[in-house]
Design a protein around this nucleic acid. Structure first.
Lengths: 412, 412
DNA sequence: TCAACTTTGTTAATTTTTTTATTAATTTTT
DNA sequence: AAAAATTAATAAAAAAATTAACAAAGTTGA
């Protein structure tokens, strides 16, 4: 079906640093696409105001965009007190964006259309993330397979976003924690293989972006996303844009020195937030309690204590297992102290709790909120709402798609 | 002299939300001024590239800007391999910006010209900041006097920036901690009195902005400014812009819960960074040591221990007083732990230590750096340089001027 | 030293865009 | 229910901007 459609002209998205009338028109058309992306279908009059360009000129630009297959006439809106205006919107299947969310034990892949709608979605594809060339090869094959099964012609897929844990320099496309075998940026390597412009991103930042730009029109401009998994990540959105810092290593929230304990963190230091408030800490605490003689439904009969996973504990808590709920509450309290730090510094509109651990919802959120109020200035924390991720497991893929999409549409 | 100059046309800076050719030309001219402000004197060809507008059109715009008194021909630059180009720069005395830095026991006032140069500067004008209507009245009078003594006609002063401690909403112009007597924003009240558009700002943020935009061309885009005084403030510059947060209460760095002590902070909570690493903590520690029998040159013979000020201790340290140097080192170490938190979260290019306490230079900086390295990820802290403020006491006034200036020129 | 080449700036012709006027489609008012 | 008012879209006229051609000013190299 899609292959039968007429060709779409994407020159718009690759405007060089030329000049002249042709260049200006391209820039104006790009502006139109961006405006409609942000504000939804728009009339000629609205566009004309936004571009500060006359109505006849705007009409001409929109006509060209329709001919190029990017825009479509969506009929007339209700009158605002006079002749009804035609509105124009993005053609949903004009182009697509691929998102790949690489987790420790599986991969989620998805495809998003021009209108930000997910069209295909494969959850939990079996994959084991190991820092080997072979693992990378398998990942690339997996992406290729997804593309060919998607039935969408490759030329219409304008970008691919990939999430990895660890330290990523989004700008250069380097991954430092995983698959760092050559000098050449990993993004470049994958791009060569799949034939689609590829953008790497840290998983927490990508999830933050996904949560921020999806769903309802987000009036919030400053949002923090806390990724609660085995470790603790932080995605920072400032004024609607992802914050990277000097070399893209921002958001090492899990390793702020907040406690006076003697537990050695993965990073080699003591007292990190992660030693008390992460999934990793949860499992440690769980084991300690079981060894002291506590019982819990999270202990499966055919599994040894050492093999207990985060999922086991989360499932048990959802089934009202007392020990697990208590431990989650403890984790939430410790986390709350960390969130208080963030609130005092950022005065954000919203903090979203995401990642695997956030599936426990209020078991972790309520203790966190209560401790957070205790440790941050009330004038500041009054402004901040703390909520559980709405996208859940999907925030990663959605974020990856959205990052690729905004790279292409906005060049940011 | 200045009064003899021909009239300058400022319409540019007040472009309404109109449309049409006239409006577009205004916007283009504003863009020219902004570009020259950022990149220095420029040629027609450079401007033409930046605006993506033809050379004849650009020539016409520049000619108009010269006629309006904002731009001037600055002669020809060295050839780049052909005919030499004329360059155009900002007319330094076209307009001015006022900066007022209100401290606890004095006020600094200054005037900056169109080219970011300070033309008049009055340091440490006697003033006591008290939360009374009378104090506010005196402050306004002080500003009025400064203006009339400056010999600059009021119409050429396009903006006034005022720094206050405490919680400020820059956007609405409200001050919540001081002079909050009516519903009407304080900025509005002062503006009515002095007859110049007025912008309020939190002192730490203003100092951050001053430090960021003055001096050398700042290649750093993400900078943190730590204001070490009796309290601890934080100014955050993200991508060259001040970060405010939801309601302008960002940067409450002094009140992050970092220590497990029993000291009650001004904010009512325990364990705040400010209880261990501020000027206020320094004085407390100093008193404790003296009471235990230590001696120090900071103790003036005609002053009781209770009247010891931050300045006394700083001066003593500069004169190599052992106790004071030791205490500063202790303060520096505690501060370092706080800075480690910031570095892990922000991965900034630069952290600047400013405010009164920073006058002690390496006595506080070196211990801070050493502890900071211990508590933050080395991959991240390698990127960050920690330096003492170069502007010192003046960063406040310069920041206030620059904020007023960028409000007018950039409407930000 | 002078021709060939570069870059800047100006003028005139051409193209593009905006304005203004007019027609069309709805709602509001009388 | 018809006229007046309001908003949208189109066509023709007027204005503005770009392009292209050329002159001016400087560099480079034989």
């Amino acid at each position: 079906m899609a292959s039968k459609r007429k060709k779409v002209n994407f020159e718009l998205f690759t405007l060089g640093s030329s000049s002249g009338v042709a260049y200006k028109n391209k820039a104006l058309k790009k502006h139109i696409v961006q405006f409609i992306d942000n504000r939804g279908s728009s009339s000629i009059t609205e566009l004309s105001k936004e571009l500060t360009t006359s109505v006849p000129k705007t009409t001409a630009l929109v006509t060209e965009l329709i001919a190029e297959g990017l825009l479509q006439d969506e009929g007339k809106i209700d009158s605002t007190g006079g002749r009804r205006a035609s509105v124009f919107g993005l053609v949903s299947d004009a182009c697509f964006f691929l998102g790949v969310d690489v987790k420790k034990y599986h991969v989620n892949v998805g495809l998003m259309d021009f209108q930000k709608r997910m069209v295909t979605h494969k959850d939990k594809l079996p994959f084991k993330m190991e820092n080997t060339a072979d693992s990378l090869k398998k990942l690339i094959q997996l992406i290729k397979d997804f593309i060919s099964h998607s039935q969408i012609e490759r030329a219409r897929i304008l970008g691919c976003g990939i999430n990895l844990t660890g330290r990523i320099n989004q700008h250069t496309g380097h991954s430092f924690s995983f698959y760092h075998f050559k000098e050449e940026p990993l993004a470049e390597v994958i791009q060569q293989e799949i034939g689609i412009p590829t953008y790497l991103e840290n998983d927490s930042r990508s999830m933050a972006f996904g949560e921020f730009y999806s769903g309802e029109v987000s009036s919030e401009r400053n949002v923090l996303f806390v990724n609660l998994d085995y470790g603790i990540g932080l995605g920072i959105v400032v004024d609607g844009k992802i914050y990277y810092g000097r070399s893209g290593f921002s958001g090492e929230f899990g390793h702020i020195p907040l406690f006076d304990n003697e537990i050695i963190c993965h990073c080699g230091k003591k007292g990190c937030l992660e030693t008390e408030a992460s999934g990793w800490a949860l499992i440690r605490k769980f084991k300690e309690h079981i060894e002291k003689g506590s019982s819990s439904s999270a202990l499966k009969k055919n599994k040894s204590l050492n093999d207990a996973t985060l999922e086991d504990i989360i499932t048990a808590a959802k089934n009202e297992d007392t020990l697990c709920i208590e431990l989650l509450s403890e984790i939430g309290e410790k986390l709350g102290k960390g969130l208080a730090v963030l609130i005092n510094i950022f005065n954000p509109e919203l903090i979203i709790l995401g990642g695997t651990l956030s599936e426990t919802g209020d078991y972790i959120r309520l203790p966190a909120r209560s401790v957070l109020n205790k440790f941050s200035l009330s004038l500041v924390n009054n402004d901040t709402s703390l909520r559980i991720s709405r996208l859940g497991e999907r925030s990663g893929v959605i974020g990856a798609c959205l990052i690729a999409r905004s790279k292409v549409i906005y060049n940011t």
